[in-house]
Design a protein around this nucleic acid. Sequence first.
DNA 1: TTGAAAGCGGTACCAT
DNA 2: ATGGTACCGCTTTCAA
Lengths: 344, 344
Amino acid sequence: MGNSRVTVREIARLAGVSVATVSRVSNGTGQVSEEMRRRVLEAIEKHGYRPDHLGRALAARRHGALGLVFPGLSGPYFTELIQGFESEAVPARASVHILCTHLREDSDDQVLEMARRVDGVAVIGGTISEPALLRLAELVPVVVLAGRGPETVPSVSVDNAPAMTRLTRHLLVDHGLRRLVFVGSPDGSPDVSERWAGFLAAHRESGVTPPAEPVRVAMQQPDGVLAAEQLFRDPTTAPDAVVCANDEIALGALVGALGRGLRVPEDVVITGFDDAPMAALVTPPLTTVRQPVRDLAAEAARLILSAVDAPGGPAPDSIVLPTEFVVRRSCGCATEPPTGGTGK
Amino acid sequence: MGNSRVTVREIARLAGVSVATVSRVSNGTGQVSEEMRRRVLEAIEKHGYRPDHLGRALAARRHGALGLVFPGLSGPYFTELIQGFESEAVPARASVHILCTHLREDSDDQVLEMARRVDGVAVIGGTISEPALLRLAELVPVVVLAGRGPETVPSVSVDNAPAMTRLTRHLLVDHGLRRLVFVGSPDGSPDVSERWAGFLAAHRESGVTPPAEPVRVAMQQPDGVLAAEQLFRDPTTAPDAVVCANDEIALGALVGALGRGLRVPEDVVITGFDDAPMAALVTPPLTTVRQPVRDLAAEAARLILSAVDAPGGPAPDSIVLPTEFVVRRSCGCATEPPTGGTGK
DNA sequence: TTGAAAGCGGTACCAT
DNA sequence: ATGGTACCGCTTTCAA
């Protein structure tokens, strides 16, 4: 399997210098005379020497890798997340390990195992147990992405609750809607749980009785159409508005509603969360909340990277990024006037 | 950062045995007396010793990691792909490194860099240059996923061309459609290029003149709606049928067509490829080609894993997995009679 | 400036 | 069955 078996000693022998010198040259550290440097470089070039990552990592006691743990990637949200994370990791010469705990019982162990192969880990909120998170945090720097961890673990998230309150208030107050439902499972995901809380808060604020329970479904398009089927089966109990935990669900619900011959927003209002690329392209375009997913992940990577570089430093503060309410047609608005920050 | 600093020597000293014995116990290799084993286990337990992955990897000259390279993950296709790959890697105690070359100029270098950190790599067809692929292959075992590489590099793919020919023939012959368009870019993706070829072949077969060029767009839902907008802007040049390179595009095109007030399949037929979960759930359900994405990735992982275990062995044969034509309503069929293998 | 040598954390061969 | 020890490939003192 090729020439990857060339080692420092080999090069040292070939160039007639010591391994220390080779190391210095290949790393650009220390002082090396022009003459030596030339000889070494020549040998390196000639034999295609590239320092072995393992040897280097062992000596440096650093893997040069970051971990990213999520439930099971799906949809544009995770796409953005991974790319945002990579956008910071790659320039820092750190590779990215991913782990989908999705549907696996032993995910806590898997994560702990991963901790032995990376310098730091970002965990999507809700993917592993709190004890496991704590254990993990004493092994490597950890940050919770999209959620909140125990006090000691920093996190990066968005202002889900106020954003969802704002959106729900718009439906309740500006559009006078009364029978709203919330689609999504607050149980496993901190994000969704906060959005559900924001949904409830807006109801409380307006004195409208909210539904007792959310419609619990997963976060993908198919789940949205399934939810729509269930919600619109019986016209007498059908809601005025379907507030979805994310755009994927909303897109599915929209397809499902349209497929049953309903008009949106005339017969039913549908809203999302994320502002995924499709949100603006469907008919009617989706009213939603834009969140900076890429930045979120990039911020997480940055936090970890700096914790890795400054071991023993103070735990970084948690970060909450702002969202933006995006009004389009699916909520019943004719145009898009009231845009702007979440506003509190 | 916790007790991860416990080493073999430490444990050996604590248990009053040699490092060799500790190693034997912690690996379950060799013969160890009950007494020794107990003492060692006790010390291990007490100090929470877990062998360091780097030390182990260096000694074994094996990373215990596999790489997965793709253009830029998006949509259900890549979700399935990653999970299929992981489903084989994780049980083999190999972690998964991912690399999205998407929009990066130096992807060839990135991939070569990755090769130094993993034992083998799966590369999605069309993501890196052929020279880079060859270089890569002399560093570690490589398999091309969804595409074909140079003769010496094994690949795993599906029978794209015949499958697409079958689907197109159905439109041409069974439905008598004449003005078909193909949406997708054959350029970067071997999969798409084969599907385009299959599309052309069916036309040739039936003596129908195919469009001179495909409608080149990326592989996601937004691209599909954009394509629809462009295709249906001018009614006089609108196609009878939109054959999409994958379901994502088809879903987008469907949304776009429906959004413009067109009826599907009455006004225009739309077909996909993949049989993603949404395909069966939209209205009308999508006629498409089912491909075993998960199996594809799992097979790739298996191939790499066995190449890693049997270094110097013969290059494994390339594998072509069968697809299944799935007839639903979007092609104009009332029901779903003609199902079955691709048939050749 | 350069080199010898001591690790980094494990594994495994070779004696005993 | 057990222990001593030489690696694995690279970095980094410490002397010269």
